[in-house]
Nucleic acid binder design. Sequence first.
DNA 1: TAGATTGTTAATCGATTAACAATC
DNA 2: TAGATTGTTAATCGATTAACAATC
Lengths: 212, 212
Amino acid sequence: MAGKNENVKKDVSIAVIRRLPKYYRYLEELLKKDVTKISSNELSKMIGFTASQIRQDLNNFGGFGQQGYGYNVEVLHAELAKILGLNRDYNAVIVGAGNLGHAIANYDKFDRAGLKTIGYFDVSEEIVGKELRGIEVLHLDELANFMENNEVEIGIITVPRTQAQSIANVLVEGGAKGLWNFTTQDLEVPEDVLVENVRLNESLYTLFYFLN
Amino acid sequence: MAGKNENVKKDVSIAVIRRLPKYYRYLEELLKKDVTKISSNELSKMIGFTASQIRQDLNNFGGFGQQGYGYNVEVLHAELAKILGLNRDYNAVIVGAGNLGHAIANYDKFDRAGLKTIGYFDVSEEIVGKELRGIEVLHLDELANFMENNEVEIGIITVPRTQAQSIANVLVEGGAKGLWNFTTQDLEVPEDVLVENVRLNESLYTLFYFLN
DNA sequence: TAGATTGTTAATCGATTAACAATC
DNA sequence: TAGATTGTTAATCGATTAACAATC
């Protein structure tokens, strides 16, 4: 019994995972304000989740609190950083160096969070050869070669939808373990590769829906 | 009994709403391929939701199918467009005309979906005065005035987080009914205003999490 | 008509909330 | 110690899936 389950961390539901960054963000603010401790009840009032949910969520990863006291802000903040994998860097390439690609590349917060974009690729003659954050934008044709010669964990896809799948293939072939997909294309990838989709159109349509 | 409930469309859950754009997208593809009819079962195989879920989802809005036949692609596509509010235009302003603002402004698909960006605002000297899609980018100070003189339904916020709330206030004061918020700030707005958040950092952290 | 497939009710599953004993 | 608040189990709620009668 013991041996077999030792490494089987019971799966935490995706709903929980997606709430973690919010906890992290609020903890960060408390830290800045030099707040040293916080109860699930106080946190509940700030964030808008129930205290019960907060305690349940956190307890998926360990007992970070102390009865009668609450949670130590600094400790919890650090634990969340660890859980979210913010304690290390991730090499990434951006494929599609248009406005959206630029926006991501230039967003300091992502860089500080550990997203290190080490390569930019495009097909447009206007863009290829230009510099982005001190790095020359390469032609898409050089992507496969680049992937071979660099450790790239994350591929960021900000190209027109029709090209998305073939680029995903090159990225995966080149060793990327995570794809951040900004297109509407549903990408097919091997089981050990992760796709995180940002569906701006779905978000927009949802907004439209509620305006009617 | 009749009178009171007549207008009370039972609330459709947000989970359902967020699946609609995906149905719409796949229907669009079928339409392009001149497929005239589709069963929930066939759709299920394409989209990856269960046939049962698809039928349940659609039946929140009406009985669009026909027993023994399935769904008429053209009809269902048109119905979804109507439900999602894609059958009309929405005037919008973009506040924050940096890379992200540019990306949104230049994304043709949004324009074709009905998002009409009629004003751009920023504070940067480098950007204010320049043209974006043939329209001069104005200084943020002119936003309130612009809102007063134009019908603007949607405010798109792509500024640094610290300015987000005060800009939201101006937008709401000026009549915006929906905010598309690309910052991490949780916006406080009156009850009749809708905020649709795009949390890129939460998406990125989720990706990080799964890479560990 | 027989076969197919919807619309809809019932059963199941999972996530959220409530409750409270454990304990700092 | 008494009070506070966690960690955790139990109850509730809502969403998903299964089943099937209705019907094209």
